[in-house]
Deep mutational scan, measured.
Amino acid sequence: SSQSQGISSSSTSTMPNSSQSSHSSSGTLSSLETVSTQELYSIPEDQEPEDQEPEEPTPAPWARLWALQDGFANLECVNDNYWFGRDKSCEYCFDEPLLKRTDKYRTYSKKHFRIFREVGPKNSYIAYIEDHSGNGTFVNTELVGKGKRRPLNNNSEIALSLSRNKVFVFFDLTVDDQSVYPKALRDEYIMSKTLGSGACGEVKLAFERKTCKKVAIKIISKRKFAIGSAREADPALNVETEIEILKKLNHPCIIKIKNFFDAEDYYIVLELMEGGELFDKVVGNKRLKEATCKLYFYQMLLAVQYLHENGIIHRDLKPENVLLSSQEEDCLIKITDFGHSKILGETSLMRTLCGTPTYLAPEVLVSVGTAGYNRAVDCWSLGVILFICLSGYPPFSEHRTQVSLKDQITSGKYNFIPEVWAEVSEKALDLVKKLLVVDPKARFTTEEALRHPWLQDEDMKRKFQDLLSEENESTALPQVLAQPSTSRKRPREGEAEGAETTKRPAVCAAVL
């Protein structure tokens, strides 16, 4: 046999249950609850290399294929790409003598399909299967379609040439079993990697079954959420508030809700932002270029202005709740996480202390139980975000031990490091100062900020419009641009040419 590394010779191994799959997660993409704000000051410096380099560890398999027929071997997927077919160049070659004697062998292509993985959001991997055969590759009886790919989820059954000719079961060793999710959700989405997690739940990458488009699904544990919100009269209202707010909003710089499922837990389906959180971008770069800050901040102002015009105060604006559309420097941003939002009543007064301390406005800290506050709290938070983006460190921090965090904020005395700000323009610093004003009545509004000289930049605004146009074009394009080929190089076993392929839609398939 010419099988590559990772293939075992026996096809009769006992199949494990899916609970053996491991679970991976990374930083929070968007969480309903406010958790302790991640610290920006503690960015690790590059460490000196050791005298002796450690040995390379043996790579762990990321997936496993269990053979369902004699003549096929099990495969431990270690590499990122595997070709399957009769050709000797394939990493998994159909060359077992037992297999060659079967009637089905002649229906398999020289290069029938490939399984591979690509880097997705949060640097996690996504597994795909890609059909290159004349007679078809099927996943859970659905045709992939020649020249098309679809994501592979845990426990997928792979069939060759005929939908009933099941050859492998695919085990993704990095994700959960699909069966743990409600059927209504599974009918519409293929669940994938964990993108982030918080005290009350997690955010998962998923794929729409009909279109193969990526989405983010925010899962909120009702049990954990009820415990964490025990002081509230009705904890469920917080989730329902977020859903109702998101459904009503329609702005290019605000995250869109696509679906909602109320089962044992809450499942909020949101558009996916491939670039992750602004927080991670700031930490990764230490600070952002001023031109990049301007492009992002302009969009934040437009989003918050839209919220305020619609009578909504976000109340928890922070870099973790600003998501980026891509890994590119120039990209769209979207505001997310409306769990603490407040729809303005007639009095415009709110007395609930919520939000993240580092970003809270002075009037929030001094008015607990005594007075109210209004939309100006969001403008203060925007000032803190702009400060961080321009400088790479927070204006107020618990680690300045000589003054408490509350006193720093209520006095408006931010930590100004001259040598850092020497590289920032006077106009940018002036806008920061106009937003970090203790008196909410004297603080800049979103309208005033948008009129500030720093943002009178036609090149930046043109760039934003171009990015918007690109997004609109990409969302308007159909996901499947061509029909699967019906040509046949070899006959199917026991049926006429093209008899099955043309009847089945290529579900969740995307043209390369």
Score class of each variant (00 low, 15 high):
N310F: 05
H308D: 09
Q299W: 00
K286P: 10
I254N: 04
H452I: 00
G339Q: 00
N321C: 00
R351E: 06
R400T: 09
V304K: 09
V420Q: 15
R375P: 07
Q456G: 06
E320A: 01
K433W: 14
P440G: 12
H452Y: 06
E470G: 13
E495V: 09
K286E: 10
P505G: 00
Y267I: 14
G275A: 12
L353A: 12
L349F: 09
T502Q: 05
A428I: 00
K248G: 04
G284L: 06
L360I: 09
V366A: 05
Q483M: 08
L317S: 04
F297N: 03
Q479P: 14
S348C: 15
D459K: 02
D280C: 12
S325H: 03
N472E: 08
A361P: 06
K342G: 01
E497L: 08
S397F: 12
D316L: 00
R488G: 05
K247D: 07
D459A: 08
E448L: 15
Y267N: 13
E320F: 05
L288F: 08
T336L: 02
I312Y: 01
G275P: 14
L405R: 04
L272M: 12
K342E: 04
L302F: 13
A428V: 06
L382T: 04
G284Q: 11
A376S: 08
L307S: 14
I417D: 01
L481T: 11
T347E: 02
E458Q: 13
P252C: 06
G383S: 10
S397P: 08
T352H: 00
K294A: 14
G275V: 02
I313C: 02
T370K: 11
E277L: 02
L323A: 02
L288G: 12
K489N: 09
Q305W: 13
K248M: 08
N374K: 08
E448M: 07
E277G: 04
K318N: 02
R351N: 07
D407Y: 07
K441N: 12
T501Q: 10
C379A: 05
E244T: 14
V364H: 14
R375E: 15
L246M: 14
S326P: 13
G284W: 14
G345R: 11
G372T: 02
Q327I: 12
H251W: 11
M300L: 09
L405F: 02
L477S: 07
I257W: 07
Y359F: 11
S425A: 15
V507A: 06
E244D: 13
I333C: 00
L467Y: 04
K256C: 13
S325I: 13
A449F: 03
K281R: 06
W421R: 04
E471Y: 04
T370Y: 01
R315E: 03
K434L: 09
N259V: 05
T352I: 02
A291D: 09
K342T: 04
G372P: 10
K258W: 05
L249R: 06
E277A: 04
Y414M: 02
L323P: 00
K294P: 02
L344H: 01
E470F: 11
D280I: 13
E274C: 13
F464P: 01
Y267H: 10
K318Y: 04
S341R: 01
A510E: 05
L431A: 01
Q299S: 11
K503P: 10
E470K: 09
K248F: 05
F297Q: 11
D459N: 11
E274M: 11
I245P: 08
L386I: 03
Q465M: 15
N285A: 08
L405T: 01
S425L: 01
Q483S: 02
I417C: 13
K503H: 00
T486N: 13
K289G: 06
R488C: 13
A263N: 09
E447S: 08
Y267V: 05
D378R: 00
K334P: 00
T347L: 10
L295A: 10
D430C: 01
